[in-house]
Amino acid sequence: MESDTYNDTLPSVDQDLTLQRISLGIHGAPELKRDEKLNYLGEFRERIIRRLTKKQVADTFVYTEIEEALKHEKSSKMLINGTLSPQLIDKYIKLARQVDKSYTMIYDPQLTGNTGLVVVSNEAVDIKDIDVQPQDPGSKDQLSR
Rank of each mutant, 00 (worst) to 15 (best):
Y40T: 10
T64N: 11
S76P: 02
T5W: 01
N122H: 04
V118D: 04
G116P: 03
D59V: 09
G138R: 14
D108A: 02
Y6I: 00
D35A: 15
L17H: 02
K140D: 00
L111F: 10
I66G: 00
L52F: 03
E123A: 14
V120Y: 02
Q142V: 11
D141P: 00
L88W: 11
I49K: 08
T104D: 09
N122L: 09
Q142P: 04
A29H: 15
L41M: 10
H27K: 15
Q135M: 13
F44I: 02
D108M: 04
D35W: 07
K54D: 01
I22F: 10
Y107I: 03
S75N: 06
T115H: 08
T18D: 06
V132K: 09
T9G: 02
L10G: 03
N114V: 03
R47F: 01
S85W: 08
L70F: 01
E31M: 15
K91T: 02
K71L: 12
K71Y: 03
D59F: 11
V62C: 11
L84F: 00
D4T: 01
I22R: 14
V119D: 01
I89A: 04
R47G: 05
T5V: 06
A69K: 03
I130D: 08
T104G: 03
P30M: 13
G25K: 07
N7A: 00
L24V: 04
I93K: 03
Y107R: 08
F44G: 10
K128G: 07
M105K: 09
I49V: 14
Q98G: 00
T64V: 08
T104I: 11
G42D: 14
I80V: 15
Q133S: 12
A124S: 13
I130M: 07
S12Q: 09
S76F: 08
D59I: 06
Y6R: 07
M1G: 11
Y103M: 02
D136M: 09
D136F: 09
D14K: 06
R45V: 04
Q133M: 13
E46N: 15
G116T: 07
V119S: 04
F44K: 10
Y40P: 07
Y63H: 13
V13R: 14
T83L: 05
P30G: 06
S144L: 11
L10H: 04
Q135Y: 03
M78H: 00
I22Q: 12
V99W: 12
T18Y: 06
G116D: 10
V57G: 03
R145Q: 09
K128N: 11
K91W: 02
Q20L: 12
Q110S: 15
L88M: 12
D136I: 08
I93N: 02
P137I: 12
G113A: 07
T115K: 05
L41V: 10
S23W: 00
Y92P: 02
I49W: 06
S121W: 06
R145D: 07
M78W: 01
